[in-house]
Design a protein around this nucleic acid. Structure first.
Lengths: 215, 215
DNA sequence: ACCGGAACATACATTCATGTATGTTCGGGA
DNA sequence: TCCCGAACATACATGAATGTATGTTCCGGT
């Protein structure tokens, strides 16, 4: 209640606390990437973090919250990707963006947790918010809302097609342990599809721009 | 060695044997679909099959072989899909084919085992042949070899793009427990892409057909 | 100097899946 | 009729992960 005294005391420790927390979260994420969900256990996470189960139970009384935190970290890792120069069209940029996401090993952890949350309803309830937050990653409606890019139904279909294809490539990476032999082939095809669609959209915008007059 | 006596004796039982085997395999497949890999355990499979672990150990001393058999059954289920009328172009048909594959619940079991085989190297060795056999499902090079369809690099890229997009949709189904809201949207976009590519190929073939003369 | 709580570590009991051994049934051949 | 082996079921031991309780350290306040 009286946050004054607690604050001064706990603020000194806060770094210490979050150190162990981050260790556990990072260890969980690394284990998910290397061993998958089924082999990512409490003791395994503690082993990797160099801590004991006491620490795990202290910071994460509910094991699902650890996985939720790991999922959030994985999403953050994908969102922290360097923003590309915006020379290209929006759909072409979308291909680059989606591809740079699925290339990261964190993407495997995301897939593992996606499937696990569906297999285990209890875990699914715990992860639901984290999943909902991160499902925007491949959703053009959420991602482009702040840009001044209008989203026609046809364009949205292409956006989502690109996303799904990249998810497929990401699964292929997770399954084969490395990039599929035809990954660049598919990415090139997606780039061609994206450029075609970008051209169509650009032409339509220009036409409408002529009607509206210059800004 | 002398298969005569063994044959007459065991042939009587063969139906009985394969009954239990099939029960176990089907139970494993159902468990993979409903509970995923991590929760698909020996006792769970036996419970579903109405048998005991003695039967499981008798028919599948190596647990991985049960999963391999389940994977093979899942592939068979996908391959036994009704062949569509061939009115459409080859790429358009490929979209239909890939989509009809990922719609089946068996596809989730395949994804689960794909990931599990990568996470567990020992299991991966056991499943490798079954996986190799079934990876042809989405590989146009293997699937179209008996058809008289020639496969240009550009066409192959579109084939694989369609496949990866459908895999992405399949994962989405496995994750959300049902079809994604934009599944038909993506399929329609893929159909458009496929028809475009089919047209290009068709034109090129006609042109070359004119050079060769009629058959 | 004493105390109290945060941040862990340690220890024990339980559960669950598995490995393995042994028991049981049942049908066919001698 | 007797016996033998296939095709299971049953039972016990093991190991691993988890739930839970308790112990320990360290730091800050009084």
């Amino acid at each position: 209640m009286n946050g004054e005294l607690e604050g001064s005391a706990s603020r000194q420790r806060e770094r210490h606390v979050s150190e162990a927390r981050h260790k556990l979260i990072d260890a969980a994420l690394a284990s998910l990437i290397e061993l998958g969900f089924s082999r990512t256990t409490g003791v395994e996470v503690c082993r990797r973090a160099g801590l004991t189960r006491g620490a795990l139970n202290y910071h994460f009384p509910d094991y699902g919250n650890l996985l939720a935190a790991a999922l959030g970290t994985a999403y953050d890792n994908l969102l922290d990707l360097p923003t590309r120069p915006r020379d290209e069209g929006p759909l072409e940029g979308w291909v680059q963006r989606a591809h740079s996401c699925i290339v990261r090993p964190d993407f495997k952890a995301i897939i593992e947790l996606w499937l696990a949350s569906q297999n285990d309803p209890e875990l699914g309830a715990t992860l639901s918010e984290a999943i909902a937050q991160g499902s925007q990653l491949f959703d053009p409606v959420f991602t482009l809302v702040d840009c001044d890019i209008e989203l026609t139904p046809e364009a949205e279909a292409v956006y989502r097609t690109i996303s799904e294809a990249c998810v497929g490539l990401g699964v292929g990476r997770s399954v084969s342990g490395g990039p599929l032999a035809h990954e660049t082939q598919v990415i090139d095809a997606l780039l061609n599809i994206a450029r075609d669609a970008d051209r169509k959209i650009s032409n339509r915008t220009k036409k409408r721009g002529a009607d509206h007059g210059a800004h």
